[in-house]
Design a protein around this nucleic acid. Sequence first.
DNA 1: AGGCGTTTTATGTCTGCACATAATCAGCCT
DNA 2: AGGCTGATTATGTGCAGACATAAAACGCCT
Lengths: 246, 246
Amino acid sequence: MISDPAPPGAVPPPEGSPGTLGWQGIRDVMMDRIRARHYAPGALIPNEADLAAEFGCARATVNRALRELAEAGFLDRRRKAGTRVIAEPRRKATLEIPLIRAAIEDLGAAYSFRLLTREIAPPPPEVRAALRLEDDVPLLHVVTLHLADAVPHMVEDRWVVLATVPAIEAADLTRDNPNEWLVRNAPYSEGTMRCGAALAGAMASHLGCTAREAVLVVERATWLDGAPITLARQHYAPAYGLTLAL
Amino acid sequence: MISDPAPPGAVPPPEGSPGTLGWQGIRDVMMDRIRARHYAPGALIPNEADLAAEFGCARATVNRALRELAEAGFLDRRRKAGTRVIAEPRRKATLEIPLIRAAIEDLGAAYSFRLLTREIAPPPPEVRAALRLEDDVPLLHVVTLHLADAVPHMVEDRWVVLATVPAIEAADLTRDNPNEWLVRNAPYSEGTMRCGAALAGAMASHLGCTAREAVLVVERATWLDGAPITLARQHYAPAYGLTLAL
DNA sequence: AGGCGTTTTATGTCTGCACATAATCAGCCT
DNA sequence: AGGCTGATTATGTGCAGACATAAAACGCCT
């Protein structure tokens, strides 16, 4: 049965006006109802046709509104089974993957970088494993120091699969840093990302801190249709943190 | 002008078949074209009506496909100006905010928790600042240790604004841990989330590690329509990292 | 009871069509 | 030239109707 008569509090303002609120308005009203528990957690809500009648609009408009709420993780929609309020919504935080130059400039600092290492070498086993590499081919290995107002901000240790992105071998990475070159020239279709913490250790000298300080480590690997592209491990300066949007 | 004749490589399979590929198919074809630079980075793509004619479908179907690509950060759409390929796509990683119990059980471990502290106290200045609290009212302060297979996994230090969520004062937080209680009973409309690194320090005793190890720290604050709800600082056990999806 | 098709139902998607809205562009006036 | 105004144009949104599809519910048969 449907929890129509609003058990506890009630914030349902669909009003008697015709249908001038659009799909965003309908989404907002439905969101309010979910929050106010007009629709109980876990309960079914009315079907699209009924809601369309209530809001005085077409079913497609209700569909658009409910689809968004489902994508946002508040509703569970299944054919024939109807639409259900998720009792324990698993919300998502999103992280805009920073183009390093842009991230630093957004901080109001002047960006610069230094290429510390550039070599073609066989990767260590963990790198091969992380990229799911089968052959033991040499990769391009670059270490880049990124600075904000000439102060070390992040060290990026990156391996690039030349077989997948041969053009990078000829690129002048002292002009465009590897991060930017890849963003512009190597689209990817899949990837993994993990962030953790570690002691600065060997990175301390680059970051201008002591080896015993804690730094944020971000590791990202990318593929294009199954072909490995690159693995990057980034060590940020102490006290720096990533901000995600909810 | 539009980069229609495909400059470098070309992967445009719209074929002569009528219109049996649906909006997802159209999205995929367009994605392939962007990756193959059939549409040059920064260039305009054909308008919806033309694409609809090419794919043999209605404009609404093309619209749906392009809207998704725009949301994913590959296209920039503006009324009258048309749709443009973003040259340096700023991609987003998403983190499913874990219900701690579920996160640990997904690891294949048995979940348990211990409430270490429960008090009502005035918050320190940084907590007030993070929640944008104006009055100097006392908050509920709980510290919870979450364990995976009886091994310490994370310590959560949380402040809850009683004025916004009075019901939590009566809740039995030794049954439902604060995390779960809030997810079920305190919906939020806005929030911030930040993750960084720190030395274990005073948390070491709870986490079963030394004070000089690096641990991941996640700080989350939430509001409901501007009213502050809670601030949580979570210290994870050493070596644990968050995995984001690209 | 138990198992197996068939019906029913709610959502998913598509089609044409229409109008709204924003932003560009051209042309006009001063 | 400079600036305002209005036409043009591409996207944003809406509607009504239709068919597709998944899955639950029902009923039938054994």
